[in-house]
């Protein structure tokens, strides 16, 4: 009740996802600013919540059907937790998992939902969320009605560090709803991407090799940087035309459109056909010795440093 904030903790393969910590950091800030407490909702089976120290407490449902994310069981369990905590605002990640929860929670709880949020704050007792709409062309500030709302937040909106704090908060489990035993949706397994067939549209970090890499012999240097960033290597058209990388890696008009959180363009001039495929990346860093290269028009940061000097130095710093 009152000004309590609930963050839905998302976990995959036994670890809380980065966005969980982003939400916890923001949730902590909102709770502290309004005199409320911060609760993390943990839906799982014997989940270790000791990484959730940013929260004052954990309210969870512990049940075998929650071990892996399941849109049906996790929603049913979340509805119970929200009913128990009765928070002022529930923060859900606008991720693949969160999209299966937020709208359903809105209907079950008859509570407002604002999605695609980049920011959320409490002003004079009202929850206000800023959404990124229309492909990022438009922002909308929404005021949520009533005294209990849901905001689904785009991953990467807040620093995760603010929410990383060890120290096991007290865990209270609420009873699992009966429906968990008869779920209509069954999880049957995780499918890992096949090696050699990278889906660059699914990566948060992309390092793009352009004509400026000069030779396929230089690809390992680029791959090392991508590895240090936890990302994948993509390419502009000349690289693919030269058969240095497969077509599945091509970004641009005749390749794929990508919107990663981070896009590092190495030796990419930035032809319109290329820009079309990547200009909506959240953070673009361009390296090109030609200071008039059009890539610098869309990049947030740029440098004319020689990529063969810069990339190894950068990789070393990131490791």
């Amino acid at each position: 009740m009152g000004n309590d904030v609930l963050v839905v903790a998302e976990h995959l393969k036994g670890e809380f996802t980065d966005v969980t910590f982003e939400l916890l950091g923001k949730g902590r800030e909102l709770a502290d600013a309004t005199g409320g407490s911060l609760t993390a909702a943990v839906l799982g089976s014997s989940v270790d919540a000791s990484a959730l120290g940013a929260a004052d407490k954990v309210v969870g449902v512990d049940h075998a059907s929650l071990a892996e994310f399941n849109p049906e069981t996790h929603l049913a369990a979340l509805v119970e937790v929200v009913g128990h905590v009765d928070p002022r605002v529930t923060l859900v990640a606008n991720t693949s998992m969160g999209m299966d929860l937020a709208a359903g929670l809105s209907v079950r709880r008859n509570a407002p939902l604002v999605a695609y949020a980049l920011d959320v704050k409490v002003e004079d007792g009202s929850v206000v969320a800023t959404s990124q709409l229309y492909g990022g062309k438009i922002y909308a500030e929404s005021v949520l009605d009533g005294d209990s709302g849901i905001v689904s937040v785009l991953a990467g909106s807040f620093p995760a560090d603010a929410g990383r704090k060890d120290g096991a908060p007290a865990v209270e489990n609420v009873p699992a709803p009966a429906s968990l035993d008869g779920a209509r949706v069954k999880f049957t397994g995780l499918v890992e991407p096949e090696g050699g067939d990278v889906d660059i549209t699914q990566h948060d970090v992309l390092v793009c090799a352009g004509r400026g890499i000069q030779s396929d012999e230089n690809l390992p240097v680029i791959e090392e940087l991508a590895g240090a960033l936890g990302g994948a290597v993509c390419a502009s058209r000349p690289i693919v035309d030269n058969k240095w990388l497969p077509k599945t890696r091509q970004v641009g008009k005749s390749g794929l459109t990508v919107k990663p959180k981070v896009y590092v363009a190495l030796g990419v001039s930035g032809a319109p056909e290329h820009l079309e495929g990547m200009k909506d990346a959240e953070l673009i860093i361009a390296v090109n010795t030609d200071e008039t290269a059009p890539i610098f028009e869309v990049a947030h940061y740029g440098t004319t440093e020689d990529l063969f000097d810069l990339v190894p130095a950068l990789t070393a710093k990131l490791k």
Partner: peptide, 21 residues
């Protein structure tokens, strides 16, 4: 209803090219 009201809709600021390092 959506349960919320848009109080302000706007176009995000456009960048003015890269900040060169």
């Amino acid at each position: 209803t959506s349960g919320s009201t848009v109080r302000r809709m706007y176009t995000p600021e456009k960048g003015e090219g890269a900040e060169m390092l």
